[in-house]
Amino acid sequence: MAIKLNAIKPAGRYLTVPATALALAVSTQAMADVTIYGRAHVSVDYLDDGADYSKANLSSNSSRLGFKGSHEINPDLTAFFQIEQQINFTTGSNDGDSASFSTRDTFVGLRGNFGAIQMGRFDSPFKTARGPANLFGDQVGDMRNLTRVGNARFDERYDNTLQYTSPEYNGFSMKLAYSVYEGQAATEEDDSSNAGSLSLNYAKGPLAAALAYETVGADNSRGKRNGLRLAGSYKVMDDLKLVGFYQSTDYKSGNSALRKQLSSDTYGLGGEYMLGKNTALKAMWMTRDADDSDYGADMWVVGVEHKLDKAVRVYANYAFMDNDKHSKLAPWAQARSAKPGVAATGTEAAGLSVGLRYDF
């Protein structure tokens, strides 16, 4: 469910909306329809690092508030925008820049028969390419606990990005994005903090798949790196969907030992079975095979999710991470406010989570 603010009415007529929405009404002239949307996603978790930490937590999981809208310039050209902010429902604080109202996907662009061009700060094509296999997004057991490790991570929103999205043709589409630099302005020393990202996507019938490549320059704050990603899902029958995922990361910065720790192949298989019209049983296994074999890990996740209606769902997940000798990954470290540090080195870390998600 989303709240729409229709074209602003002439002076003398007022709309009852939150103060943040009224800030958009800078004049009494007509403007594009604006939709207020968001997500409240909170869970109760029991987290165990396999050593000294074993505690219950309350977590806000990528909860958000956003505004989006569009304006038809002519039948062949439409302008669009989005402004999105992360919201913490448990403490009110935010891991990002709390002074900014654009911590999540924020952009402006034009679309038409040619496709769409947008500018701003938003998920890269490489990041969104995990979508077909993303069974536990923003939950305990999120695949990013294995794919987004240290400075070799790729699931990013890059600053100062331009993106082209092609029209869909027979199920196929393409996204091409380029980040020109980090921060507010380019500097003379900042010659290669750029990043390029490309994805080829397919969705038609029972099959959805994405193939993506991303490269980041040496002057980027996390160093030079390249990545390849393939994700897919296939509906074997109406009640059963199988998913697969593969990612190869080549980290090129730092010394040889660090490069071996962060360069890796990560892959996994999973499935979703509908127990009823609104209830799904989900499971996934993933492994991170680092170039240095002592830094690998395996993760198993199983969960059940029930949709109370289109807007509200509840779920319960159990995730288990088995770390190799020098690895210290946890199945709860990504997209959540309750992430009490890394797991103890070489241990088996686990998390049990019961959550409520309300999309509005």
Rank of each mutant, 00 (worst) to 15 (best):
M119N: 06
S98M: 12
G109A: 07
I117F: 04
R121P: 00
R121Y: 05
R121E: 02
D105S: 11
G112H: 04
T103H: 02
A116W: 03
F101H: 12
G96H: 05
F101C: 04
T90K: 04
S93A: 13
L110R: 04
A116N: 03
F126E: 01
R121H: 09
R111S: 13
P125H: 04
G92I: 11
T103R: 07
F126D: 00
D95W: 09
F107L: 10
R111Y: 02
G115R: 00
G115C: 00
A99E: 14
F122V: 00
V108P: 00
A99T: 13
D95Y: 07
G112P: 04
F114N: 05
D95H: 14
D123W: 01
F101W: 15
S124W: 03
G96I: 13
F122T: 01
F89T: 09
S93Y: 15
F107C: 07
P125E: 08
S102L: 09
N113D: 15
R111A: 10
F126T: 05
G92H: 07
D105C: 03
N113L: 12
S102V: 11
T91Q: 08
R121T: 08
G112K: 06
D123V: 03
S100Q: 08
D97G: 04
G120C: 00
P125S: 03
L110C: 11
L110F: 10
G109L: 02
S98R: 12
A99R: 15
N113A: 13
G109Q: 00
G120E: 02
T103L: 10
G112M: 07
D95S: 15
D123N: 15
Q118T: 11
S93P: 13
D105E: 13
G120R: 01
S102H: 05
T106F: 06
S100A: 09
V108W: 08
G112C: 08
S98K: 10
F101N: 14
S124Q: 05
